[in-house]
Amino acid sequence: MTAHANAIYPSLKDRAVFITGGGGGIGASVVQHFAEQGSRIVFVDIDAAGGQRVVEQVMAKGHAAPHFFQCDLRDIEALKATIAKGAEAVGPFTVLVNNAAHDERHPTMDVTVEYWEDRLQVNLRHQFFAAQAIIPMMKAAGGGAIVNFGSSSWHKGQGGMPAYVTAKAGIEALTRSLARDFGPDNIRVNCVVPGWIMTERQIEKWLTPEGEETLMKQQCLKQKLTPADVARMVLWLAADDSRMVTSHNFFVDAGWI
């Protein structure tokens, strides 16, 4: 199949974008793709070295440096302060990408109350509070776009990580609730649901020849998904091209589910 250049969305040029979990994996690709659009980017990650590496990669391609802040998203006050600081740097945010998560496996019978709470904090709670902090900026600007990240894991009935899949299922409900409440303010809220994306972490920890063979049998499209495949969906949902699209899930899974 002939390669084509990626789309450029004029509405994303100079738009202020806040991205969580941008220091690696899918999030790093999202940062890089918004940089290619000429957006003004602030991103956070708990991994300081990873965040700085993404900044350097963006600059090496000739794009303006995004603003990176190290932040543990379990600390909501720190998250709110970082959002405020980021808005001072690039202007009020009209795009929020709630990407950060951690799909650590955990047997059901080993889960403690403390671990359960931690997994919901890492995977769900910060998405709500980031939206709560940025929605007033979007209202003042006359609208905005929120892109949450769900997961195909619970759609497939995956076991071995009950707290993670519970959090990810909740994100889809949160998406629809926010879309309903803030649609009158011209704020769109959608959820991207990635399939098995070949990030470095996934390849290192879980991809086996047997797993890849099964995946190719189950996917309609017989190619491995990359972070860029997801990032391009995020761009479209953030751009004005999708101006009448809200309250829905968008699967980027090659027909896996």
Results as ranks from 00 to 15, higher is better:
residue 5 A to T: 09
residue 6 N to D: 14
residue 6 N to A: 13
residue 7 A to K: 12
residue 9 Y to Q: 05
residue 16 A to R: 02
residue 16 A to Q: 06
residue 17 V to L: 03
residue 18 F to C: 07
residue 25 G to L: 02
residue 30 V to G: 01
residue 31 V to P: 01
residue 36 E to K: 15
residue 41 I to K: 03
residue 42 V to R: 00
residue 44 V to D: 03
residue 44 V to P: 03
residue 49 A to K: 13
residue 50 G to T: 15
residue 50 G to R: 14
residue 53 R to H: 14
residue 58 V to T: 15
residue 60 A to F: 07
residue 64 A to G: 07
residue 71 C to M: 07
residue 71 C to N: 11
residue 72 D to W: 04
residue 76 I to A: 08
residue 76 I to Y: 05
residue 82 T to N: 09
residue 86 G to R: 02
residue 87 A to V: 13
residue 89 A to G: 06
residue 90 V to F: 11
residue 91 G to P: 05
residue 91 G to L: 12
residue 92 P to R: 15
residue 92 P to W: 02
residue 93 F to C: 13
residue 95 V to G: 00
residue 97 V to L: 02
residue 106 H to V: 10
residue 110 D to M: 12
residue 117 E to M: 08
residue 118 D to S: 06
residue 121 Q to L: 10
residue 123 N to Q: 11
residue 124 L to A: 08
residue 129 F to G: 04
residue 129 F to A: 06
residue 133 A to S: 13
residue 136 P to V: 10
residue 140 A to V: 09
residue 147 V to P: 00
residue 148 N to I: 04
residue 151 S to N: 10
residue 153 S to L: 04
residue 153 S to D: 15
residue 154 W to A: 09
residue 155 H to I: 11
residue 156 K to Q: 15
residue 159 G to C: 12
residue 163 A to W: 01
residue 165 V to N: 15
residue 166 T to W: 08
residue 167 A to G: 09
residue 171 I to A: 06
residue 172 E to Q: 13
residue 172 E to P: 00
residue 176 R to F: 06
residue 178 L to F: 10
residue 179 A to T: 04
residue 186 N to T: 06
residue 191 C to H: 01
residue 199 T to D: 04
residue 201 R to C: 04
residue 203 I to P: 02
residue 203 I to G: 01
residue 207 L to S: 07
residue 207 L to T: 07
residue 210 E to Y: 12
residue 212 E to T: 09
residue 217 K to N: 14
residue 218 Q to Y: 03
residue 223 Q to P: 00
residue 224 K to E: 02
residue 229 D to V: 02
residue 232 R to D: 04
residue 238 A to C: 15
residue 241 D to R: 08
residue 246 T to A: 06
residue 248 H to N: 14
residue 250 F to E: 00
residue 255 G to A: 12
residue 256 W to I: 12
